[in-house]
Design a protein around this nucleic acid. Structure first.
Length: 458
RNA sequence: GUGGCUAUAGUUUAACGGUAGAACAGUGGGUUGUGGUCCCACUGGCCUGGGUUCAACUCCCAGUAGCCACCCCA
């Protein structure tokens, strides 16, 4: 390395000093904050999509008899350890968990089913008529590397049925979600599998381990570990060495016990009867420990067609042992979760026609102080009469106000100026055609009722 | 968590080792009582920190964030 001449060094020093002084002289602006990684604001422009999805989901919940429930976002970390499983990815590497001021080990919930099972037990809901059916919608948190459609703070909504082990329940949930997705304008397909109960799964695991042990050398490193820890997951692996092997692997459906097999067959029969198209996927293994018997995932259809690797729009299954694992009485249950962010992405991609949020029926424009005062009272009258109304009370000039009315998409503008105040009249302007009529001020509410209930609006 | 790509007005973007132009949006005006078209003007920007250089928005490094792949799932 060449040493710099002294003069240059000196110049440098002066420059740095100058910079420092500049920094002092001009007090730096406060820094601008931004959302944490993987978290985002839902802005008004985006909101109609959220309203669309949430609204439809809530309607389905009502129609299918699911009651609304909200559980806290913070829970004891141990809850998920126990329910979801300490070895699962979600718990072992994706939880926002920390020790709070009281020394308690708590976390932001990574999913909702565990909380719902907890609530069911805590509030003695086994004493309610069974099954108990819940609908939830809320934020979940997973500390993952974010990208489109995978966030650290994201939403899930879902349907859970506790207290009934009948296969109809599984089918109904799949059917419900299938219909909901269609109603949202999304063509989807369902993949279904059964992973049996702990008993038959155990015997299947042995078969699977035997099969793979013979080919151990072709397995990837990860799968060699899985062979011991969680052999079912090997079926999920996409490594070049592992993937082809699953062709010859024993399939769990062939090893289900009578009870599990019957259950699965019945689920499929119900789906057939309801004409829900589904694909049997013997390799579908869900990543949460609490699942038993039926498991399923929903994908958008074009992803299947193009073979593009798809994120699931939703998934779920039966979890007959969860309540017991969490200290409750043995209680069969089944549920599903969906991701509104992903649904919205698809809705946009498919150009689904999403209705705008409330558009004002009426915009009231005013000119002059007297008119403004009179308008203030009139707006309230119109609101009470049930109209969606906005106004330009803070504005001067008609042009400006009509411009706003136009941008908002208001159907009618009411114009109240000095002239009208003196005459005791008001102008109704049809914003689409531009035609205007002058009405007696006292008759305006009645007149608007005529116009707007006459099928033009709402 | 590992690897790759990216970062310029509110948004989408252009150019350049000598500090930046556009379109759309916003504001004001043309029209002080009439919107959606048109015309004019204005506002507003190089993610942060370091380094190389006489000079960095530009090159290098780090941080941060976004996107992509893996992992996994919503």
């Amino acid at each position: 390395m060449v040493k710099k001449p002294k003069i240059q060094k000196k110049a440098k020093k002066i420059k740095v000093a100058a910079k420092k002084q500049k920094a002092k002289a001009a007090p730096s602006k406060p820094r601008v904050f931004q959302t944490l990684r993987g978290m985002k604001d839902i802005l008004p422009g985006e909101y109609k999509y959220w309203h669309f999805v949430k609204n439809k989901a809530e309607n389905f919940a009502n129609n299918y008899g699911y009651e609304f429930i909200e559980t806290p976002i913070l829970e004891e970390t141990a809850l998920f350890n126990r329910a979801v499983g300490g070895e699962t990815d979600i718990v072992s590497k994706e939880m926002f968990s920390f020790t709070d001021r009281g020394g308690e080990n708590i976390c932001l919930r990574p999913e909702a089913t565990a909380s719902i099972a907890r609530a069911y037990i805590q509030h003695g809901m086994l004493n309610l008529p069974q099954p108990v059916k819940f609908f939830y919608f809320g934020q979940m948190f997973r500390h993952e590397r974010p990208q489109a459609g995978r966030l650290r703070a994201f939403h899930q909504f879902g349907f859970e049925t506790l207290g009934d082990g009948n296969a109809v329940i599984d089918a109904e949930i799949i059917f419900l979600v299938y219909n909901l997705l269609q109603d949202l304008g999304l063509k989807t397909s369902v993949q279904v599998n059964s992973i049996g109960c702990p008993k038959c799964r155990e015997s299947y695991k042995n078969k699977l381990v035997n099969y793979y042990r013979d080919q151990r050398s072709s397995l990837c490193e990860e799968c060699k570990k899985r062979l011991v820890k969680n052999p079912l997951r090997i079926l999920d692996c996409k490594e070049a060495g592992c993937e082809p092997l699953k062709e010859g692997a024993p399939q769990i459906v062939d090893y289900l016990c009578d009870d599990c097999k019957n259950h699965f067959v019945r689920v499929l029969e119900y789906l057939d009867d309801a004409a829900v198209p589904y694909n049997l996927n013997p390799y579908l293994v869900r990543g949460l420990d609490y699942y038993t018997k039926t498991v399923f995932e929903f994908f958008s259809e074009e992803n299947q067609a193009t073979g593009q690797k798809a994120e699931a729009l939703g998934g779920g299954g039966r979890y007959d042992n969860l309540v017991e694992v969490l200290g409750g009485r043995p209680t069969p249950a089944c549920g599903v979760a969906l991701g509104p962010e992903r649904l919205i992405t698809k809705i946009k991609e498919n150009n689904v026609d999403v209705p705008p949020l409330i558009v004002p029926d009426i915009f009231l424009a005013q000119l002059g102080e007297q008119a403004r005062k009179k308008s203030f009272a009139l707006i309230e009258d119109l609101r009470r009469a049930g109209f969606y109304i906005t106004h330009g009370l803070t504005k001067e000039g008609l042009k400006k106000q009509l411009e706003i009315a136009n941008k908002l998409g208001a159907r009618y503008a009411l114009i109240l100026g000095q002239k009208e105040v003196i005459d005791g009249t008001i102008i109704i302007r049809d914003m689409e055609g531009g035609s205007q009529e002058i009405i007696d001020f006292v008759k305006i509410v009645q007149e608007m009722k005529k116009k707007i209930t006459n099928g033009i609006a709402k």
